[in-house]
Simulated assay, not measured.
Amino acid sequence: MEAGGLPLELWRMILAYLHLPDLGRCSLVCRAWYELILSLDSTRWRQLCLGCTKCRHPNWPNQPDVEPESWREAFKQHYLASKTWTKNALDLESSVCFSLFRRRRERRTLSVGPGHEFDSLGSALAMASLYDRIVLFPGVYEEQGEIILKVPVEIVGHGKLGEVALLASIDQHCSTTRLCNLVFMPAWFSPFMYKVGVHINRWPF
């Protein structure tokens, strides 16, 4: 690596002071610089993750004292979620720092309800990809089994608050989820309405 003859550890100390956009620019220099930026996981990426006021600890609330496997990955999920869930955010692909977090496809909108693409939340989730939006049209949706959220999605009720009711037990395994304009009722087969497992960080509803 051509870096003026400085040892890698010294470069890591220098790069640990950079902000996210500058880290992104450095990662575009060459493969060696990209790998060097990734190696800052337990230092700069940890600082960025814990220093973000909108982020919770990656293992909140169950194991806040346990370090995640990757601080960069945890920060990436926060970053993607904050941009994706904000309607008026700038195009993610245009950001230089987003080269570290690049997504390959556009998010879709899946419609659930009578006369729409899907008749249940479970069937829509089976077809959903990262950061897709699932719109539930007015009605009462009673899921017969536990709903497992495996990928980050946005689930939104269409219409006024109270027009969409969801009777379901939800187990979240993905890093982030946004639920909006929904009324939750406990499913008949479970006393639990929403369960949060390890490595979960829900985005504020």
Results as ranks from 00 to 15, higher is better:
2 E>K: 08
2 E>I: 05
5 G>S: 08
7 P>F: 06
7 P>A: 07
8 L>K: 02
11 W>F: 02
13 M>S: 13
13 M>R: 11
13 M>V: 09
14 I>D: 12
15 L>N: 04
17 Y>P: 03
18 L>F: 15
20 L>D: 06
21 P>K: 01
21 P>E: 13
22 D>I: 06
24 G>H: 09
24 G>Q: 10
28 L>P: 02
29 V>D: 09
30 C>I: 02
38 L>D: 04
42 S>R: 11
44 R>P: 08
45 W>G: 06
46 R>T: 04
47 Q>H: 09
48 L>G: 07
51 G>K: 06
52 C>N: 13
52 C>G: 05
52 C>L: 14
54 K>Q: 15
56 R>A: 08
58 P>T: 02
58 P>M: 03
59 N>E: 12
61 P>R: 10
65 D>R: 05
66 V>F: 12
68 P>S: 04
70 S>Y: 13
72 R>V: 00
73 E>K: 10
74 A>M: 08
75 F>P: 03
77 Q>I: 10
78 H>N: 14
78 H>W: 15
79 Y>P: 00
81 A>E: 02
81 A>T: 06
89 A>D: 14
91 D>H: 07
92 L>Q: 12
92 L>R: 10
93 E>G: 04
93 E>I: 12
94 S>A: 02
94 S>E: 03
99 S>N: 13
101 F>I: 01
103 R>W: 05
105 R>Q: 13
112 V>N: 00
113 G>T: 01
115 G>W: 10
116 H>D: 05
117 E>R: 13
120 S>T: 11
120 S>F: 00
120 S>D: 01
123 S>R: 07
126 A>V: 00
126 A>I: 02
130 L>Q: 12
131 Y>N: 00
136 L>C: 03
137 F>E: 14
139 G>V: 10
139 G>N: 09
140 V>P: 06
142 E>F: 06
146 E>K: 13
147 I>A: 06
148 I>F: 03
150 K>V: 11
154 E>L: 08
154 E>S: 14
158 H>Y: 14
159 G>V: 02
159 G>P: 03
160 K>I: 01
163 E>S: 14
169 S>Q: 12
169 S>C: 15
169 S>K: 05
170 I>Y: 00
175 S>Y: 09
177 T>Q: 10
181 N>W: 09
182 L>V: 11
183 V>G: 05
183 V>L: 14
185 M>N: 07
186 P>C: 02
186 P>M: 02
190 S>G: 08
193 M>Q: 01
197 G>F: 12
204 P>R: 05
205 F>I: 08
